[in-house]
């Protein structure tokens, strides 16, 4: 495991123990145990409806779990709003449909949270935003509105927006699923760079090339359970469970 950038602090970034969640009567997450170390890159895959998005959305409490515990950066998750907001300060999230704020310019999208949540002066927040927009190679579009950008550009802005809060872990919820094929690479390139810089990442994705390149671990989920968990090389070459084999044959088969 590459851990040249792992912090001195060796508490795990994320710990989930005995996590269960239901939507009404539907048992969507079943006895999930997962520990993510700082600096680890994890790819979560599985058929649709297997609970993978719900799992990562529990980490920043966009979804509420009913049983089990989650500890993020040493902070145990409770119902307390202040506690949840505190956790969210450390956790960045990138959504399938970008969810940029359409009424704000690209620059304002990125500087909004630093200004209003971290109380940074406007000038400083905008410099920070420009720094990250340059990093995702979109600084020249800073004064446009999201509606004027392509999907790939919007998703890169969304990544920059999250990075502006200096998160310790980034959650990616199918970041390339809503993109046209020719735009997937520009987003994946940014994600690979981020991984190489040592960011702790949890990615729900079907981009198996990305998983092979950057993941420390690949997790396969089906019907709300973690079925298989392994390093990418053995995961792809020698899947153990039948369901994993079936899934991989379906997505890699053509």
């Amino acid at each position: 495991m590459t851990s040249q950038t792992a912090k001195a602090d060796d508490t795990p970034m994320i710990e989930m123990r005995g996590l269960n969640k239901w939507y009404g009567d539907f048992h969507v997450l079943r006895d999930i145990d997962l520990t993510v170390q700082r600096g680890e890159r994890i790819v979560i895959c599985g058929p649709s409806g297997s609970g993978k998005s719900t799992l990562i959305r529990c980490i920043n409490h966009l979804e509420e779990h009913q049983q089990g515990e989650i500890v993020v950066g040493g902070i145990p998750m409770t119902q307390d709003v202040k506690r949840i907001e505190q956790i969210r300060h450390h956790v960045g999230m990138v959504f399938q449909h970008f969810n940029l704020f359409p009424h704000l310019s690209v620059l304002e999208n990125c500087s909004l949270a630093p200004i209003w949540v971290q109380k940074k002066p406007r000038r400083e927040a905008e410099e920070l935003a420009m720094k990250y927009l340059e990093r995702v190679r979109i600084a020249e579009q800073a004064h446009k509105f999201p509606g004027q950008l392509s999907g790939g550009q919007q998703q890169r802005v969304a990544i920059a927006r999250s990075l502006c809060m200096h998160p310790e872990v980034m959650l990616f919820d199918e970041p390339t699923s809503a993109l046209d094929p020719e735009m997937i690479k520009e987003v994946l390139d940014v994600m690979v760079e981020l991984a190489e810089e040592g960011m702790t990442m949890l990615c729900v994705t079907h981009e198996m090339g990305f998983a092979k390149t950057v993941a420390d671990r690949v997790i396969f989920m089906d019907q709300g359970q973690i079925i298989e968990e392994n390093a990418p090389e053995p995961f792809f070459n020698d899947p153990q469970s039948e369901r994993t084999q079936l899934f991989l044959s379906q997505i890699l088969g053509h």
Binding site: M93, N99, F101, A113, W116, R161
Partner: peptide, 23 residues
């Protein structure tokens, strides 16, 4: 307003009044 807007704001650590007032 799509639900994703409020979620994105929440994920950035904004509280209820900021999510409503700004987004």
């Amino acid at each position: 307003i799509p639900k994703g807007q409020e979620e994105a704001a929440a994920a950035l650590g904004m509280g209820y009044w900021k999510r409503m007032g700004l987004i």
